[in-house]
Design a protein around this nucleic acid. Structure first.
Ligand SMILES: [Mn+2]
Ligand SMILES: [Mn+2]
Ligand SMILES: [Zn+2]
Ligand SMILES: [Zn+2]
Lengths: 154, 154
DNA sequence: ATCATTATTGATACCATATATCAGTTAAAC
DNA sequence: GTTTAACTGATATATGGTATCAATAATGAT
């Protein structure tokens, strides 16, 4: 499964700034151990739209618990995005430093990212409308990607 | 856990139009059996933000499989909304006929609904920007509701 | 370098949410 | 009423993930 990075931004076309996973953990007091280096390596290799299982498959000699723990730490630290497919199954992807959202192909699973100033303005306006204190949001778009759309669905 | 319906819409304050669950299933060729009537009854009683387990608890004599199957059918038919809490745990709520989104209190789990014309316009404009064919989206806001915010968190 | 301290690992058990199987039951159609 | 197809629910299985805990590795003094 190939994963590409597309920036649909209407405001900027700069390449994504990716977090340094090891540094992010180190900065929070986590030790950069061998198993964690292996997990980080696999994440950087798999890029967008990997799963916990795809990491475990690629790291037979690293314990499942360590893989899941490292994912959890990286999520807490903000270095990974957790995505939810329409059926509820989770996927992860390398975060970028700037706030962004995702598109996911429901056929091949390809994850792409986008920023959109209109949406961000709209989100801020909604947050002003909602009386409760907003502590987060989730917004994902499900697509049939260009490749899946042309090749037919198989 | 109390659940209220708040319509934060900037365009309309009409009460939510709820789908007729039995009719929705019947229209798709499903039989309206005793166990399904019981599940539907429990769903209508529990309202916003129930879980599969909360239905099973309320319906000791209906099989778990039947509860889950009925939820699945109602989701397929569009009569239920499936929500994902920040930790990934699912919740369900009675759909309303009109397209809408949800807020969920991360403290007490209360689910509310809203419509917002600005967001819908922004979504349409994004959908024009994204080259892939959009087949769906998910947008949820996580809040600390007014009640939890005043009573302190316990 | 050595030792003491502490974090980390990974095998295992377990949990939550949900689906697959399938023999038995119910409801619909004839 | 009989046939037929849908449905049920006990049980097994799948998936994604956490809890435990003895063994190990990294750290930070001495
Ligand atoms: Mn991302
Ligand atoms: Mn809803
Ligand atoms: Zn695709
Ligand atoms: Zn609350």
């Amino acid at each position: 499964m190939v994963s590409i990075m597309i920036d649909y931004s209407m405001t900027s076309q700069q390449p994504a700034v990716r977090p340094n996973l090891a540094a992010a953990l180190e900065d929070r007091g986590f030790r950069i151990t061998r198993p964690r280096q292996r997990v980080i390596g696999a994440i950087e290799e798999q890029g967008e739209g990997f799963t916990a299982e795809s990491l475990c498959d690629a790291l037979q000699d690293v314990g499942r618990a360590t893989v899941y723990r490292t994912i959890r730490h990286l999520l807490e630290v903000g270095s990974l995005c957790k995505l939810i497919m329409p059926d509820g199954t989770p996927k992860y992807s390398l975060a970028r430093v700037e706030h962004h959202h995702h598109t996911m192909c429901i056929n091949c699973g390809t994850v792409s990212e986008f920023r959109d100033s209109t949406i961000e303005r709209a989100l801020r306006s909604i947050e002003r409308e909602i009386p409760d204190e907003i502590v987060g949001h989730r917004m994902e778009f499900y697509v049939v990607c260009a490749a899946c759309s042309t090749h037919g669905s198989r």
